[in-house]
Structure formats: structure tokens, C-alpha cells
Amino acid sequence: MKQFRTIASSLALALGLSVGGPGATSADYQHLDDVIITFSLCVGNDCVNGESFGFDTLRLKENNLRIHFNDTSTSASFPTRDWRIVINDSGNGGSDYFAIEDSDSGRQVFRVDGGAPSNSLYVDSSGEVGVGTSTPVTEIHVVDGDSPTLRLEQNGSSGFTPQVFDLAANEANFFIRDVTNGSQLPLRIQPGADSNAFYIASNNNIGLGTASPDDNLHIIDSSDGYFGITLEDTGATGGTGSWRMVHGGQNTTFRISRAGSGLSELILYEGGNLTIGGTLTTAGSCSVGCDAVFEEGYELPSIEDHAEAMWTNRHLPNVGPTAEQGPMNISDKVGGILNELETAHIYIEQLHREQQASQAQIAYFEERLTRLEQN
């Protein structure tokens, strides 16, 4: 045995290796020069003489496979974190996986479980990432046989209320799913929708059918000459039904109608004419005081003063002048007309009393005259 150790020591020295001292039960070899292995290398308790490497250049072979990157930097200005490549759990019944471990924290920051499908994660030569595909055509390309999905989960670890949303697509639609609240789908886009079906400009204007909205909401429909807005109430309480606002068609009108009635409650024509199917009620007040003419203390002008103002100003005093062109305040105008109408009726009633008084006087004098003639 002593002779064997001497031969081993001589061989180690010839190879430039440092061996353990005499009496050591095992010896670590420290190589003081570069090592070049022409063929393959097997490391581990289960490597055997005549190992069949196939195309492997380096093989780790035993029941607990780890590669440890131990950074021994001591200066405060240098990074010192240790990393480890971990292959499978070491305990009975553990998991099969490949992982990269942050050894200082004991956390596996990257892991691939055994049995993962081909191209679970693929980065091509241009840096594009494929998930489920080896031919990504965008920065991130996700392929799956049924509704490829991106999940966004706030798990509450930072003290905020947990919430989960999914971003997904399939043959029926592209959608956002509110997983936390009953998997509702608040946003859906069906395949085949036109470009700019919904567009938000940099100034927050919204375009429907246009990429250049000129107002807060700008709607363009070039398919059939019509565009419409339907307001539908489907609530369980109160009245239900829907109303439609439609532009287009004959005379390029704008119409408001009760959906399904076949009737238009309001029609606005291109020239500005307006037709309604019922009565018109305004919320405007009578600025001149309509029924105030009947109130005690109201200073009603005399018929003569009223007539003078009317002929001088060439309009009824309480109606005001009417511009030949331009907007007209219908509520104020109608209120003034009502005031003038009520004033006129008071004048008529006054004249009627004067007429009755005159007729009574005429009848009195006629009677006196008749008596005088008889005498």
C-alpha cells in the first residue's frame, strides 16, 4: 500500500497535482495549471469505466445533481451572491425539474418542470419569445390549442385587495375576463371587426369607425349610410325597453324612436325643420311674468300707452324684437306672447264694459227722447 501511495504521489507530481499528506484516508487533487480534456468528462458517484457518452461532452451522474456558483469576493464593492443550478428534488417522491436558484435567498427564480411540452419557452435569434411555438413572429408570441391566455393576478402580498384578470382570445372573440367577480367579460372584440371600430385619440376624443375623431364622440358608418345609437333598459324594476337615435336614410334625417314601434317620435331634417309626434313642453320660464297681469298691484299700461309703444318700436312690448335671422328663445318668446294675449283680453274686457256702459246710456237717452216726443 505504501508503495502504491508513493507511485500515486509521483504520478500526481508529474501531472502538477497536489495531493493530501501521508495517512490521509482520501485525497483531493489540486491542479495548478490549465486542464484540457481531449474527450468527454463524467463527474459523479455513478460514473463507470467505459462510460458511453454519446454526444455528451460533460456529464454529471449521480442521485443528487447540483452545480454551485460560489462567489468568494470579499470587497464591499463587488457582488457576492451565490447561484446554483438544481436538477430535481433530492427526497423520495419529489419533483422532476430544472431550476436556477438564488442560493443566498434559497429561492428558485427560474424553473422548468419535467414533462413540459416542446417550445414551452423559446427565444429566437432576433430576441422574440415564443410560448408554445418555435417560430415567434412578435416580441411575445403565445400559441395554444384552446384560448391562449395571459393572467394578471394581484395576490395581496403587498397589502392590496387580491384581483385577477385574464387577457385571452379564441375563435369567438378577444376578451378581458374579470376572474375574481364571476368571470364576467367586460370587454369583447369579435373577429372581423373593422379597423378603428373603437379608437381613442391622444386628446381623449373617441372615434367609432374613424381614427381621426373631431369631437368627444365621433361616429362614422360607411357600410349602409346609416348609423345609430340604441339606449336599452333591461332592468328588473321599472319600465324596460329601448330607444334608438338614427342618422341617415331619406332626406338625411336624424330620428329618435321607440325601438320596434315603427314610429319616429322626433325627426330633424337637414334644413333644420323639426317634427315631433307629440306635444312640446319646455322648462323655460316666462321672464315677463305671464299670469302676473292678473295679480293685484300689477301696473297694466293704458291702451293708449301700449299702442304708442307698439307702433313706435314696431313690436309688441312684452314680446321683444325678432331678429330676421338667428336663434330664437322659444320659451321667452311664447311667454311674451302669452303676456300680450292676457293683456289684450283685459283691454277687451275693459272696452266691453265701456261699451255696455255706453249702450246703457244710449238706451236711457233714447227712452227719454221717446217720452218727450209722446208728450
Rank of each mutant, 00 (worst) to 15 (best):
residue 1 M to D: 07
residue 3 Q to R: 07
residue 23 G to Y: 02
residue 24 A to K: 06
residue 29 Y to N: 14
residue 29 Y to R: 11
residue 35 V to T: 12
residue 37 I to W: 03
residue 38 T to W: 06
residue 38 T to P: 04
residue 45 N to D: 15
residue 58 L to P: 00
residue 59 R to C: 13
residue 63 N to W: 05
residue 65 L to M: 11
residue 70 N to D: 15
residue 72 T to W: 10
residue 76 A to N: 12
residue 77 S to M: 08
residue 80 T to H: 12
residue 82 D to F: 09
residue 83 W to V: 15
residue 84 R to C: 02
residue 86 V to I: 13
residue 87 I to W: 09
residue 91 G to F: 14
residue 91 G to L: 07
residue 99 A to T: 03
residue 100 I to T: 05
residue 100 I to M: 10
residue 107 R to Y: 12
residue 109 V to I: 10
residue 113 D to W: 01
residue 116 A to F: 13
residue 120 S to V: 08
residue 128 E to M: 14
residue 131 V to R: 03
residue 133 T to Q: 01
residue 136 P to V: 05
residue 139 E to N: 15
residue 145 G to E: 08
residue 145 G to C: 01
residue 147 S to D: 13
residue 148 P to G: 06
residue 149 T to L: 05
residue 150 L to Q: 11
residue 152 L to E: 08
residue 156 G to R: 06
residue 162 P to H: 05
residue 167 L to T: 04
residue 169 A to Q: 12
residue 171 E to V: 10
residue 171 E to C: 00
residue 172 A to I: 15
residue 173 N to V: 04
residue 175 F to V: 13
residue 178 D to K: 03
residue 179 V to N: 05
residue 180 T to Y: 01
residue 181 N to Y: 02
residue 185 L to I: 08
residue 188 R to S: 09
residue 191 P to D: 01
residue 194 D to W: 00
residue 194 D to Y: 00
residue 202 S to F: 02
residue 202 S to G: 02
residue 203 N to K: 04
residue 204 N to A: 10
residue 205 N to F: 07
residue 206 I to R: 06
residue 220 I to T: 03
residue 223 S to E: 05
residue 224 D to M: 02
residue 229 I to K: 06
residue 232 E to Q: 14
residue 234 T to Q: 14
residue 236 A to Q: 14
residue 237 T to Q: 13
residue 238 G to W: 08
residue 242 S to Y: 04
residue 243 W to D: 03
residue 252 T to H: 13
residue 252 T to K: 12
residue 253 T to R: 08
residue 253 T to E: 07
residue 254 F to K: 14
residue 255 R to K: 13
residue 265 E to D: 14
residue 265 E to Q: 10
residue 267 I to G: 06
residue 268 L to E: 01
residue 274 L to E: 05
residue 275 T to M: 13
residue 276 I to L: 12
residue 283 A to T: 13
residue 288 V to S: 01
residue 289 G to W: 00
residue 289 G to L: 00
residue 292 A to L: 06
residue 304 E to R: 05
residue 322 T to Q: 08
residue 323 A to F: 07
residue 329 N to W: 09
residue 333 K to N: 05
residue 335 G to A: 00
residue 341 L to C: 08
residue 342 E to N: 11
residue 354 E to L: 10
residue 354 E to Y: 06
residue 358 S to A: 12
residue 362 I to Y: 15
residue 367 E to N: 14
residue 373 E to Y: 08
